[in-house]
Design a protein around this nucleic acid. Sequence first.
RNA 1: GUGGGUAUAGCUCAGUUGGUUAGAGCGCCAGUUUGUGGCACUGGAGGCCGCGGGUUCAAAUCCCGUUACUCACCCCA
Length: 415
Amino acid sequence: MSAIPQPLQGMSDIISPEVEVWQTLETRAREVLARFDFREVRTPIVEMASVYLHSLGDTSDIVQKQMYAFETRGGKQVCLRPEGTAGVMRHLAGRGQEAQDARVYYMGPMFRAERPQAGRRRQFHQLGVECMGPPTPEQDAEVIALQAALFEAWELGPVSFQLNTRGSPEDFPRILEGLRGELEARKSDLCEDCQRRMDSNVLRVLDCKVPGCKEIVQELSPITTWMDPASLEYFDRVRKTLDLLKVPYEVNPLLVRGLDYYQHSIWEVTSTALGAQDALSGGGRYRMAMGKAELEGVGFGIGMERVLLALSEAQQAKFSVDAKPLVMLVAQNDAAREANLSLAADLRRAGLRVRMDLTGKSMKAQMKAAGRQNAATVLIRGEAELTAGTVQWRDMSNSEQQEVTLEKVVGLLVK
RNA sequence: GUGGGUAUAGCUCAGUUGGUUAGAGCGCCAGUUUGUGGCACUGGAGGCCGCGGGUUCAAAUCCCGUUACUCACCCCA
């Protein structure tokens, strides 16, 4: 047993019937994305480590300890992508006007070396969207509307859209200073983590789950206190546009997001169907340096594993049963089995899903297999049918059986 | 990186205060008069009880280590 290799920790094979759920989600997503006129971009899974080092913020945990990084034989520092935005920015950087207008999306695996838990894997899959261009509140709202359309297409049930603003980069120092100032007096009442956060990442104090911290946070001034009027005006227009686009949301003044590159609109989608990791998706407007290029855009990433977890069993079953009905060919003897090989070729060419026994099992065993595999139709041939040029057509749902000529079989099955 | 729980047949699990050939259900294979499924009955295959070490006359059962799974923290999708 120990000799058989297992997948790496936090990575797993995705198999039927679950893989059909993935396929359905992906297909529906592509339809929605096309309606908003977004195009797919497929960037490499391995990039130069520098692509992430500078863009995600050097202090984030992702960069500090979660990257699968290694050195190539040529001595290059590379890593498996821990998220999608930076790779897309690497692609767009230096592309001038083309990049200015980009509306792109990606789907695929990301890698972070964390301890796995419910809704968190080391290899996980994200669907991400990046919309470039000048920062307008209307653009932010349109991207949020796209995200809402995705969840609607997936029939995900009730999800909560939570929206907030981080203000402009000019606001940041005032916000951090303001927060630290108000927290300083209460520092000894904060949990250990939050005392550490006061230096490393003050904003994170706002969404601490420890009850004592929550109380303190309630008494703080909202971060909008330290924002420029222009930033507040920006946020108002995002909200107005969302109303016009008929996207329901709620403002959560305590919402913060982990990555440094966000500014102005940030949002999260959560589901009560999930455990501790209840965020299905997170997004926001960002500005990112990539080499000497500076890019700004708005986008979001959706954790596909979490979407699957949030889907009810019933919905998953519904998404799985889209396979075509199965036709099973049953043979009484070798001659019939050989004839069935040709029949199988014809039926498959006609687009039907066909299986047959190739090992010479008894008819009883073949019928049993047909039942187990949920065949809709069984075509049976023995000596009598071979000489007559017919097959026995058995409808497995009601056990009704009749003899039909070979010429008619394809036509009957295809309709 | 930190902490809790779990690890016995393909799957879901029993296994009493350590005791001799390790069990059940489902699934699988074959039969119940030889050209036919789903029900029922009969029989069969399949486990060095995660891996390594220790205690003991004796370990699935007790002790230590290790790996994986799982849940939570940190952090994040």
